[in-house]
Nucleic acid binder design. Structure first.
Lengths: 207, 207
DNA sequence: CGTGCGTGCAAGTGCTTGCTTGCATTATGA
DNA sequence: TCATAATGCAAGCAAGCACTTGCACGCACG
């Protein structure tokens, strides 16, 4: 076999991950994909048959990559704070690594059946799983009980995804340089304080 | 003049807002735009010259629509909680109304010069403005001082945008039905509690 | 009554897209 | 040494894209 044989496929997938994140699925042309991968456009089709084939292969690769970390995330389910903190770190890591791409593809999936067929199973499971866990820890008394666990889960994912979110939406000029560790610690504390705070009686619910 | 004359432009802009939100700028074809607006494709070009012209007109319309509310938002800058709560409500409202479109267009703007030329000024100003305000209220002693105001601002926007964010990213099956008012109150409290909590000494910062 | 003006319809233009085909090149392994 | 397989290159195809042109229609206002 030619020396490049194994690298070729990986180079194409790497280029696809970059371009899907930057321009979305529909916005990524197979020509641009081949160019960034440093291969001929025909090679892309010979290796993956379709543009959709590239997406499918990429989804498999990403899935495999994150499957390894997922298990080691929960040290002790009884320790709510440690569990959530670990989950937050894992989510942030994953979000930083694949988040830009995941965000764009998730958006594309809503209007592009081709994308929806391949992506779209992951995030929902994570969300419902977290809702279930938060609900359980509420009944255990670790979390304030007066907030809907779905709202909590929403806040949790908003926190972890705010990295990729604000970094994608805000322009470069506005972005600031805080490392993952510098920002994820305080960010989790904001969430944790909010979620464990005693109920403060307020007049009129903010309407 | 014909009776439809004024409605025609508005219908096209409304259709554009929907389609840009669903499929993004590049993913929206002028044919689909005309069809949803219930007009002929040629009419789109006659009224707005370009596809980009539609985007520009839409940006102006959205800008005008949100300009009116923006002023009335801040009742008393000295009252930090009331100000942030009002800002949160306004942001959530705006996010729900235009957020899906804004999210997609902001994403498109990062790879599409055509979009970037038209969109892209709004969100950054809001962000830096909030950072400045949070910084000021920190020095006034209303907010905990041990969290970077930029992190706070990120958490704030993550909170308000989590509506549109999770509703776009998560599939329909996972979405739950909580109204804006049902969710935005608790969500703000989570943020507020996190942001005003006393510093809890912890061993080892979460690394 | 007639002149505009906003609109619809049909057709078409040039460009880009995903994807294909045929052929030459090169390195590997038997 | 020779067959095989992975790649590059040049060319092209059908479809879809933004956008244009020419013509017919009808409502409004003078």
């Amino acid at each position: 076999m030619k020396p490049a044989e194994r690298e070729t496929g990986a180079a194409i997938l790497a280029a696809a991950a970059e371009l899907f994140a930057e321009r979305g699925y529909a916005g990524t042309t197979t020509r641009a994909l081949a160019e960034r991968a440093g291969v001929n456009e025909v090679t892309v089709f010979r290796r993956f048959k379709n543009k959709q084939g590239v997406l499918a292969a990429l989804a498999v690769a990403v899935n495999d990559a994150s499957a390894g970390q997922a298990v080691a995330a929960a040290p002790d389910p009884e320790d709510t704070e440690a569990t959530l903190r670990a989950l937050a770190r894992q989510e942030v890591r994953q979000t930083v690594e694949f988040g830009a791409m995941a965000l764009r593809l998730a958006l594309d999936a809503r209007s592009d059946a081709e994308v929806a067929a391949v992506v779209g199973i992951g995030p929902q499971q994570t969300f419902s799983g977290l809702v279930a866990y938060l609900d359980e820890r509420q009944h255990a008394g670790d979390l304030r009980a007066d907030v809907d666990p779905r709202v909590m889960a929403e806040a949790f994912f908003a926190m972890t995804s705010s990295f990729v979110f604000s970094r994608q939406v805000l322009a470069d000029a506005t972005r600031y340089e805080l490392s993952i560790d510098e920002a994820s610690g305080p960010l989790f504390e904001l969430f944790w304080n909010g979620v464990t705070a005693a109920v403060v009686p307020r007049g009129g619910d903010g309407s």
